[in-house]
Deep mutational scan, measured.
Amino acid sequence: MGFKLLSKLLVYLTASIMAIASPLAFSVDSSGEYPTVSEIPVGEVRLYQIADGVWSHIATQSFDGAVYPSNGLIVRDGDELLLIDTAWGAKNTAALLAEIEKQIGLPVTRAVSTHFHDDRVGGVDVLRAAGVATYASPSTRRLAEVEGNEIPTHSLEGLSSSGDAVRFGPVELFYPGAAHSTDNLIVYVPSASVLYGGCAIYELSRTSAGNVADADLAEWPTSIERIQQHYPEAQFVIPGHGLPGGLDLLKHTTNVVKAHTNRSVVE
């Protein structure tokens, strides 16, 4: 069995187990497998329904001669939608809004960016022009300005110390501490036991640490421990890039980060 097929099978099995364990909360999309990078042309966006009122959005972007996937989250909030992270750029984010209108038909009224990198804030200006209120932590807003990236308009308070959590509509926002970046936030959907790890969490097929220019490698494993301790009931975990899975993604990420750190020390 090929690795790609095995990865998709694991996603399907995880979703099936969740649907059985929580039949009222989960209505997993039966329309197909989780979209992969090879299936999404740059400039297009796919939506994948995880649970009743919960979707991931998947886009792709060219970077350094390669094409990478990027995940975000959409959560229903009454007759409105909360968006977590842009679709990595203005063109993708405009396509995301169009796809949401086509498939869901509810307005996106608020959006949260989970850290300051372009795959999370690139497209904020498109959201703002569409009347979406954009939010991020003060740290993310400051770092985005320093980096020359787009800056969300509103500040999220109460997320300055490791372990801080605040309720934001249908989700809980959690600051686990520094990891992929010093400002990275985690998003949890309690009604569906869905954990969105953003770039602080890796997919299972990833074996290298990737972009760690703004990471705190020493603190990252401790931050992941905080996530595990705060959300032990999480059933569906979405990484910032690639295929979702279960809580095993947290341990896998820790292993990859520690291996990278150990290699760096040896070198």
Rank of each mutant, 00 (worst) to 15 (best):
L159C: 03
S193M: 13
S22Y: 10
I20Y: 10
N211D: 13
S208D: 15
A59K: 05
Y48G: 07
L10V: 14
G148F: 05
V67G: 12
T14G: 04
E157W: 12
S181W: 03
V42K: 10
A133L: 13
L156Y: 00
V126T: 09
D214S: 08
Q49H: 13
L243W: 08
I186E: 00
K8P: 01
D118S: 09
P221L: 11
L83P: 00
S193A: 13
S31Y: 12
Y68H: 10
Y135D: 03
P35M: 08
I84R: 00
N255T: 11
Q49G: 11
H115S: 00
P190W: 06
Y175K: 00
I100G: 02
L159W: 02
G72T: 00
V166C: 04
T36I: 15
E147C: 07
L5E: 14
Y12G: 10
L156Q: 03
S191N: 11
Q103G: 11
L96D: 00
V187N: 03
S181A: 06
P232N: 08
G158M: 06
Q103N: 15
V266T: 14
V171C: 02
S181G: 02
M18P: 07
S62D: 10
I104F: 07
A25P: 13
P232K: 13
Q49M: 13
V257R: 01
S160H: 12
C199Q: 00
F26Y: 11
L204V: 10
L156E: 02
A259D: 12
G198R: 03
E150W: 02
R120N: 03
I40Q: 07
A21P: 08
L127V: 03
T14S: 10
H252D: 03
G246F: 02
V108G: 02
V166G: 04
L6H: 08
E80F: 08
A179L: 02
A136T: 06
V126A: 08
A215S: 10
L250S: 00
G72Q: 01
G177M: 02
D64E: 08
Y231W: 04
A192R: 10
N211F: 07
N184G: 02
I84E: 00
H57V: 02
I84Y: 00
A15H: 10
W88C: 02
G148R: 08
I238N: 04
A215M: 04
N255V: 12
S155R: 10
D119Y: 04
S162Q: 12
F63C: 07
G198C: 06
E157C: 07
A19N: 14
H180Q: 06
Q61H: 07
D29T: 10
E44W: 08
E99N: 11
D52S: 12
P152C: 01
Y196V: 00
I74Y: 05
T140V: 03
S191Y: 11
G32K: 09
P69M: 15
I186A: 07
V266H: 15
D64I: 08
V237A: 03
S22D: 12
V28G: 10
Y196R: 02
L247H: 12
P69G: 15
I151V: 13
I58W: 07
W55A: 01
F168C: 05
A234R: 00
V108R: 03
R128P: 05
R142W: 11
R226H: 08
H117G: 00
S139T: 13
G2S: 13
A165M: 15
A200D: 03
I238M: 07
Y231K: 01
W220G: 00
L247R: 15
G122A: 10
L217W: 07
L159D: 01
H180M: 02
T14R: 07
F116P: 01
L82I: 11
I17R: 09
V266Y: 14
R76M: 11
D183Y: 05
V67Y: 15
P23M: 11
H252L: 04
V132C: 02
E145I: 09
